[in-house]
C-alpha cells in the first residue's frame, strides 16, 4: 500500500518551549511523534533522543521483514529508554526526564504501531474515527484492574502516566498491527491536540478536510490553539492510498 504522510508541530499558546518531537519519512512509510516530559529542557531532550534514536536505527536497517518489526521496535525503544535514563543520571538538571512515543511503520498491507504513554494514534475511515492506542494513564490502568488502588500514592492524578520512556529501567511497549485499506487516515498526535479538542470535533475536521490532505495538520493545530492551546501540539497524518 502507498502511504502519504504530512506532519506539523506547534508550541501552543501557553508553553515557553516545544517539547514535542516529530519525524516522518513518507517514501519509507515511517513516522514518530514523541511528547517530552520533564522540567527545564529535559522533556525536549528526551523526546528528541527517542525520535533520533529510532530514526537512526531505522535508517541503519536494511529491508525489514514483518516478523522482524516487533523485535526491532521493542529493542530500539528499550535501548533508547536506557540512554534517556543514563543521560538523566549524568546530568542532574534534566534528571527524571521522559517521553511518550508513537512510532508508525507501514510495511506491506499492515501498519505496525509502537505506543508508550498518552500520545495517541487514531484511525479515520469513512467519516468514522477510532482511537487505536490505549493511554497508559493511571485512570485507564485502574479501570482495567491492572493497577491496584493500594499501589497509588495519595493524590495521584488519573491522567498521570504509568508508562513512558525514561520512567524506569524497563519500558513496556504496546505493539499493534493494523490491516490497511485505501482511504484510511491515521492521525498520530500529542495530548496537546487530544487534550484540547474532543474526538467528535477531530472527526468533523477530518471529514471537512479529507480532500485537502496537506492542510489537515494545520487545521487541527489551529483548532487546538483556538480551544486554548495549553500544551505543545504535534500532528502526523498518514493517508493510505492503495496499491
Amino acid at each position: 500500500m502507498q502511504v502519504r504522510m504530512i506532519g506539523a508541530t506547534d508550541i501552543g499558546r501557553r508553553r515557553k518551549s516545544n517539547q514535542d518531537s516529530l519525524y516522518y519519512d513518507e517514501p519509507a512509510g515511517f513516522g514518530i511523534v514523541a511528547d517530552g516530559i520533564g522540567g527545564r529542557s529535559g522533556g525536549e531532550i528526551a523526546s528528541s533522543m527517542a525520535v533520533n534514536g529510532l530514526r537512526k536505527a531505522f535508517i541503519a536497517t536494511d529491508r525489514i521483514r514483518h516478523e522482524e518489526i516487533t523485535p526491532f521496535l521493542i529493542n530500539t525503544i528499550d535501548l533508547m529508554n536506557s540512554e534517556i535514563l543514563e543521560r538523566g543520571r549524568r546530568e542532574i538538571e534534566i534528571a527524571g526526564m521522559g517521553t511518550t512515543l508513537n512510532c508508525l511503520m507501514f510495511v506491506g498491507d499492515k501498519l505496525h504501531l509502537a505506543h508508550v504513554g498518552d500520545s495517541r494514534t487514531y484511525m479515520y475511515y469513512k467519516k468514522h474515527l477510532f482511537q487505536l492506542t490505549l493511554d497508559h494513564s493511571v485512570g485507564n490502568f485502574l479501570q482495567r484492574g491492572w493497577l491496584p488502588k493500594s499501589a497509588l500514592a495519595a493524590g495521584a492524578k488519573e491522567a498521570a502516566l504509568v508508562r513512558a520512556m525514561g520512567l524506569g529501567e524497563r519500558c513496556d511497549v504496546d505493539i499493534y498491527e493494523v490491516p490497511l485499506r485505501p482511504g484510511q487516515i491515521f492521525l498520530t498526535c500529542s495530548d496537546g491536540l487530544s487534550g484540547m479538542i474532543d474526538d467528535r470535533k477531530i472527526n468533523q475536521l477530518l471529514s471537512d478536510n479529507f480532500q485537502n490532505f496537506e492542510k489537515i495538520p494545520r487545521v487541527l493545530i489551529d483548532a487546538a490553539n483556538q480551544a486554548g492551546g495549553k500544551d505543545n501540539i504535534t500532528v502526523l497524518i498518514s493517508m493510505v492510498k492503495g496499491a
Binding site: M123, Y125, K127, H128, F130, L134, D174, I175, E177, V178
Partner: peptide, 18 residues
C-alpha cells in the same frame, strides 16, 4: 451512512472497520 465498528483483539491487532 452505515455505522462502522472496530474490533481490538488482545490489545494487539484489529479487525475492521466493519
Amino acid at each position: 451512512m452505515t455505522k462502522l465498528y472496530l474490533i481490538r483483539r488482545n490489545l494487539e491487532t484489529f479487525i475492521g472497520p466493519l
